[in-house]
Nucleic acid binder design. Sequence first.
RNA 1: AGGGGUGUCGCCAAGUUGGUAAGGCAUCUGAUUUUGGUUCAGACACUCGUGGGUUCGAGUCCUUCCACCCCUGCCA
Length: 568
Amino acid sequence: MENGKEKMPETSNREPGKDFIRNIIDADNASGRFNARVHTRFPPEPNGYLHIGHAKSICLNFGVAKEYNGKCNLRFDDTNPLKESTEFVESIKTDVRWLGFDWEDREFYSSDYFEKLYELAEQLIKAGKAYVDSLSAEEIREYRGTLTAPGKNSPYRDRSVEENLDLFRRMRAGEFADGQHVLRAKIDMSSPNVVMRDPALYRIRHVEHHRSGNKWCIYPMYDYTHCISDSLEGITHSLCSLEFENNRELYDWVLEALGLYRSQQTEFARLNLTRTVLSKRKLIQLVTEKHVRGWDDPRLPTLSGMRRRGYTPEAIREFCARIGVSRADSVVDFAMLEFCVREHLNRIAPRLMAVTDPVKVVIDNYPADQVEWFDMPLNPEDEGMGSRKVPFARELYIERDDFMENPPAKYFRLSPGREVRLRYAYYITCKEVRHDANGKVTEIICSYDPESRGGGTPDGRKVKGTLHWVSAAHAVEASARLYDHLFTLENPNVTPEGTTFLDYINPDSLREVTARAEPSLKDYVAGARVQFERLGYFCVDPDSGPGKLVFNRTVTLRDSWAKEEKKE
RNA sequence: AGGGGUGUCGCCAAGUUGGUAAGGCAUCUGAUUUUGGUUCAGACACUCGUGGGUUCGAGUCCUUCCACCCCUGCCA
């Protein structure tokens, strides 16, 4: 192994190509800030399904921990019982595991800290740094001021420590109704950072919590909970998205006021992808308004949807590695994701033949009662994958696209008088075309060259086209769901005046057709991924069952002919 | 109008004592090819939002202006 790299001069302690997060960690490790320790966490709120945007955060947090021999916790940020449920907790765990990450025994919940959080709140009150406010939500909003005008102090701001303590304890005891009081940090109502204008720490909510049940009727807010949870878990680098930049000042304030170990919050830009939406609100709308079939609809960017679509965890991880992480708002081209799936599937998917839009071919010089079983490699580039047997007979199906009566110049598939190769089988020449009353092609009569058995000829003559095919008599039927982008707009997050993303839903995002496939297709079970030669990568949908095969097209193959054709 | 951020090729993204623009996706050529797939070879930023300044030299320093994002939940 060449060792040019490790000979780098000592002064160059930065590795080119590293993202700013890893540069910060390197610097912290160099300065000994956290004793060269790296401990991150992935902190989802269990109020929805994870999507590709979360995958970016998961790969970052777990990835960084792994690279630096550190740890990464899974923490459910469950401080708002109104929105959270165990159903979401379970789906999140399934998705993180599926992506390939392991939190070992470090599964935490903010709700595990409710008692500790409460004690610390009393500590804050005793230190004169928090008070119970009895203004209504509306009044608090008015008192907060605006972005350009300072706020003003609540008339309850100067209550004594004793009164605050008494009120707060009675809040916990359930003596008050929702909204009657709120615990607030006493900071600065004229701070230019609105987050610092005496933020709410606790609110009263007589609601059952998915884990703590009815034990509590006051619940801590995010800003108060998150930093303390990070601190208690010994998190070193608390990575979150850009919209929390303004909250960092409060994050630091709370830990400072309580004299707690300080984790470092660092923000990065969240993922945006062309051709899809990643906001929770929009995703919920698509599902509840039935624009898609459910949270795991293969057209959705949810991890469960992508899993069902046939994406692999490897491909998603590779995608996250390739897009990098920075502080600049950006929109990643969906093509980047497709590249990553194709790259992985190309290596692992067995090749099969299936026809999605069949037209019949009759080989008129092939014996009507003859059937030949050809042995075909499952992947010509990987002998190790083995082979399968495929039957050839007089009547076949080929793709309707693969025949044209009046082909344009660069078309080199089948057309009258032309010879093409049927993959791994024979050369055939089109002799005659039959049509129905509407002029639609119903049957193509061909002759085959017995000498070309296997797909090559003794005289070495070349043909320009190689087509996939299926024996009509042996074909198995399968439902194929052909997906396209959910939106017709490049970026559905930015829509023209007066329209919303829903106005750009692609009516052809799902086309379900009956495909005819080679018999070996029956060997594949739900979740299996294959390549239908010349068409794309497909995977077996869970809707499949005994005698019923349903396939999802994960992604098409790259198609330079389609591009060429468009130029015409 | 206050505060916090960001602006490097169509897209993502390196660029850290200022020294003369990595890489990937996409795109376009060409070669190979029993998938118009794969693979391989090559092309693709005299320029870093903008004007000005410092300097022998600036994407990197100073400065003007512009654009975009976030913040006025008892959501996270």
